[in-house]
Design a protein around this nucleic acid. Sequence first.
DNA 1: AAATAGTGAGACATCAGTGTCTCATTCGGC
DNA 2: GCCGAATGAGACACTGATGTCTCACTATTT
Lengths: 183, 183
Amino acid sequence: MAVDRERVLKEAAALLTRRATTSMDEIARAAGISRATLHRHFAGRDALIRALEEHGIAQFAQAMDAARLEEGDAADALRRLIEEAEPVAAVLAFLFTENQLFEGGEINAGWARLDARITALFRRGQEEGGFRIDLSAAWLTEALYGLMGAGAWAVHEGRVARNDLNHSIAELLLGGIRRSMEK
Amino acid sequence: MAVDRERVLKEAAALLTRRATTSMDEIARAAGISRATLHRHFAGRDALIRALEEHGIAQFAQAMDAARLEEGDAADALRRLIEEAEPVAAVLAFLFTENQLFEGGEINAGWARLDARITALFRRGQEEGGFRIDLSAAWLTEALYGLMGAGAWAVHEGRVARNDLNHSIAELLLGGIRRSMEK
DNA sequence: AAATAGTGAGACATCAGTGTCTCATTCGGC
DNA sequence: GCCGAATGAGACACTGATGTCTCACTATTT
């Protein structure tokens, strides 16, 4: 009887990542509940998106924990992060573009914390000598987001095999396109 | 008296890239014309987006021509492409996400042609030995789009200096994050 | 069995955006 | 200066989505 909040968020994420304008009605039906009930649990569409945001941020933070960003080689940590964050990538990309909409309201402070952790990883790699220093850590962070989003989309469109995804992102990000001598 | 179609498209692009839900009214006002006139020149919102798409595709194709993708070193050609395509990147990113919406209707065939040209560039680089072959040309194409989009956004958000943008994209894409011996 | 809380279905008002139309005005060419 | 074409301003109907509310039904609890 009690509504499964997790399931609602999951279904909402699945639909919204595919079409950002999915209506509350469609989301409700996908989650197997009535529109009235959906409104009882989420004050409105905005509230639902916010909840999705909170959830996505939490999941991403969890992925970071699981990836143990501070441990070992920075490149390996990055690989682990890509691996762990893969299931969240699509939602993240959706929320990312959705933030444009909230240009008036304040953005969730959680984003800054996530950014900071990733940027710290890149900076650590630079200080330890494994990462090049002529590209700013901030840009590398943005690039990671961009590649994760592009990757999720490419898989969705069937242009990249899901099995190759993490490897493709990590390898491109770490090694670049150019053929390298050192490997 | 005659409406400057170019200007309308330009203003529309500027607004829509910032907020995808910008209304026809706002676009009209930004372009300095009335909503009625806007409707006289573009049958409706869809038609406007389509026109924007056509325009964006044409501009991108033009950028490719200017970059002379078939000439010289593939890496240099890629650098030229990034350089030439920079002004179009934001619109392209917008159209890219907007295509999700047209999931019912058929997508513009122009995209496939653009993709093909870029993919051909990457393949050429692979065949000539300059680019690694363990990442598919299709994925590299998607990654290029992703990085261009992320870059445009990062500049808009002030996280990357506009002057560094092209260099940042090209260097990351070609060389990757890892510190390399060969340079 | 009774009481309670949660749900589904649907009605309803509201709102924003869209697309169409009319009419007065203005611009440009002749 | 005149005339036709294009424009601006506004009214209007329509649509789709949203948010609220009511009422009947069902599951859970005691």
